[in-house]
Amino acid sequence: MPLISLRDVTKSYPPSQRGGAVVHAVEGLNLDIEAGDIYGIIGYSGAGKSTLVRLINALENATSGSILVDGDEVTRMKEGELRRLRLGIGMIFQQFNLFNSKTVAGNVAYPLEVAKTPRADIALRVAELLDFVGLADKARNYPEQLSGGQKQRVGIARALATSPRILLADEATSALDPETTHEVLELLKRVNTEFGVTIVVITHEMDVIQTLATKVAVMDGGRIVEQGDVFDVFSKPKERRHSASCRPSCRVFPPRPNSSRCGSGIRGAS
């Protein structure tokens, strides 16, 4: 059974203006994510990726459909159950969203305090996590004293504090330069291999999918237009539209003579 399973999920927002149309951020979406996967979800901005990932930990409530996480129906959970669910799902963000009023150690400790972990265990766990992300010497620093890459590593340590089975990464490297991006992606890979954490990666960057993901879904207009293993999807794109988003990868994938992927992408965009 998949670890995360979405069936016919729709998330609609009421019109922003009177008489406007209802916005369907996610529409009739089906998705299965197996335990241990690093599942990439790629698409243009506005495709519904960020909404989708927030449906999994119920930061957003689905309008209709079924969302199973580890066999439990998320859409029917009450506030208290949702809090327990979220202890088992870490999340990292594009803008890091660290707590500026807390030190690095305080940030990592926060989820453990929420989980009512004994104080002595918190200290041990925080030290362990900061060691894992390579920031043991920054424990007493405040977020504004860190670089972007360091902030995201604190974000990762915080997200992993309660030993979740799932990590949601919402454009986690989009605010970072290429080199730092690479460091963070390597770290996420280790999170997957060393702790067996299932990772859902939301991104608009092909490189991220290519470096990190094992499976990929392409989103457009609130739907998944294609999904499968990373290589299959990007070597034989079914739709011209998203082959344009494959274009940046032409710098990365060596183009093959009889491959249509890059050619059609460029033609499709022009």
Partner: peptide, 10 residues
């Protein structure tokens, strides 16, 4: 920041 706190189950 508030969303981050919600995401850890606070």
């Amino acid at each position: 920041v508030i969303e981050a706190a919600r995401s850890v189950g606070a």
